[in-house]
Design a protein around this nucleic acid. Structure first.
Lengths: 342, 342
DNA sequence: CTGAAAGCGCTTACAG
DNA sequence: CTGAAAGCGCTTACAG
């Protein structure tokens, strides 16, 4: 049915091997090259990646495994990665493991059975994995995004989660805030823990006593942020500043704040996490921590490609990319006693 | 390196064919079956899907092509589809075409070169496609989600976009609203046009004169909804009810409404689109149109699987699944002159 | 530079 | 029910 290199060879009056070599970038005699090219044109020949894969033991597919396909953070990283991988003719096979360790194992095996050439993994709340160790044993490149997985020795790219929090809180402190609340996400995730850690470190560094009632926890979701913010605002001594630790929570918190008719930054200062289309548009525009999602995705893709090509020079890569604070109008500088005297 | 059926055959003392038959569910003599099973166990044999695919001319992969991987609506449908496809041992290869017709063509060819067994397509703002026609010519099953693509004759699953709007507006009219605004999304998408159409039809049916200033357009995004709502609220005669036409717009509109310190439903009634985690939690809980995303995804997956198996009985399928209105507290019944007299 | 041939890991019609 | 063999569409070491 489909036209094969055999057909091309026949038409071009050369051997199979010659066509194959042409396809793989070897030099042909000029006249042969032209005839092969013509035959390919005329027959509308397209390479069969499956047959190629069987010989080369490569599938030209990269597995992407994430907790949920509906997580904007992960999918925007995947988008950037896909762009690069597709350019190199790699396809991505995506699997969702619904934050379930068992499903994770299953999907990893599923992908392995499909001979993927590399794996990009967002472990989320899952730690470790037997299936993952099989990848390492079989020398299939694995890049882990935004997680540490201490017992898995492979390439890891992440953002400076802890430091991002540190700087956000430090900034608030420099604006004379002391009553700084945090809206934490799931503590069974690496990012959740790291972002919380940075908060505590900043307070410690500047000798601000952490207050338990200012430390809230929820899921990394809109409603998680909403509920936490509501709780904070209802406190007898509400915080002067609120810091949220992911995209969804930021959104939810903003809704709670608006609903409570509390004004940013007059009544409460606010630093959000992740840049989104509304951040700059709402009133006031939000000061936020922006994650370099695009760069993370590119980095993950480039790393896995390099490993596939056998370049293990800097293995295992441990790269933490810097987040960036986007300064807008949601933080108010508080007056200190000293300010007032002046 | 990897263990093949040849190794299994040797160990089990049977022929290649026998192992293959076992793997494909044919009956073996009891003693052979046991030996084959044992050999598979002992050797840790796993089938090679690539080799299988070469013989069978099947890749066990389904292509999924969408405008953006960060569109929650599409990805939640894909999640549901993936669940079903993975159960049947199909993997999904995902491609993002960034709402760009040319990229769409490119990705469709990219996937075709990888011998996908079927395609699930979310065309978004793209209409028609040469590459898509090649799929149909080559009898590769294609299921289109939430779009019509009139010149492509294949299976299509969608929600009752127009009717969803109709019912939402009808409900508002029954609550005595006449000044009903709509926040439309991109009109170069099928869903955008259909949802707008249902709005107009409802007004016509109930003889309410459409007002141009109540009909706003924006992108299907948070800021699109935000900007449109802001404009509506600033009108000299603001509407008594606002209807938004997708998830993101709903969110953005809610923020604008809260920001303007306008109360739902006292000052304005509101019907949103798509159920999301905050819908029920915020104050007041939102009356919304809920799309059966899960069912859509399952239906798309099941349809493509049936076609792959050669079942073309109901081809081309044109299925529109009903949305559901979730009644909460964001719509107020207006008093009519008659109500007041009573 | 190129052809002939073996082989990647499987499936399946054929004959028994 | 099972073995031997041909073949899916490609690649590549070998010899020229």
């Amino acid at each position: 049915m489909a036209v094969t290199i055999r057909d091309v060879a026949k038409r071009a009056n050369v051997s199979l091997g010659t066509v194959s070599r042409y396809l793989n970038g070897y030099k042909l005699k000029e006249t042969n090259r032209i005839r092969v090219e013509q035959a390919i044109q005329e027959l509308g020949f397209r390479e069969n990646f499956i047959a190629k894969g069987l010989k080369n033991n490569r599938s030209m597919a990269i597995g992407v495994v994430l907790a949920s396909l509906t997580d904007l953070f992960a999918t925007s990283i995947v988008t950037a990665a896909e762009r690069i991988l597709a350019d190199e003719n790699y396809s991505i096979i995506v699997c969702d493991f619904e934050s379930n360790q068992q499903k994770l194992e299953h999907k990893l095996r599923f992908l392995k059975d499909r001979s993927i050439d590399g794996l990009i993994l967002f472990p989320g709340n899952c730690t470790s994995s037997d299936a993952l160790r099989e990848y390492l044993n079989d020398k299939i490149p694995v890049v882990i995004v935004n997680d540490d997985m201490p017992d898995i020795n492979t390439d890891k790219v992440t953002v400076d989660n802890s430091n991002a929090s540190f700087r956000a809180i430090e900034y608030l402190i420099h604006q004379n805030h002391r009553d700084i609340a945090i809206i934490n996400g799931d503590q069974n995730t690496y990012t959740g823990r790291e972002r919380y850690k940075g908060y505590l470190e900043a307070l410690t560094t500047y000798q601000v006593q952490p207050r338990e009632d200012y430390i809230t926890f929820g899921h990394f979701s809109n409603s998680g942020g909403y509920e936490a913010a509501k709780k904070l605002l209802a406190l007898p001594n509400p915080p002067t500043a609120i810091y949220t630790t992911n995209y969804y929570m930021t959104f939810g918190a903003i809704i709670a704040i608006n609903e409570a008719k509390i004004r940013i930054p007059d009544d409460v200062s606010f630093i959000g996490f992740d840049h989104f289309d509304l951040s700059d548009v709402i009133n006031p525009p939000l000061t936020i921590v922006e994650q370099p999602r695009e760069r993370l995705g590119e980095l993950a893709a480039r790393t896995v490609l390099r490993r596939i090509k056998g370049d293990y020079e800097d293995f295992p890569l441990r790269l933490s990319i810097n987040t960036k604070m986007i300064m807008k109008d949601s933080v108010r500088r508080l007056q200190t006693a000293k300010d007032k005297r002046q």
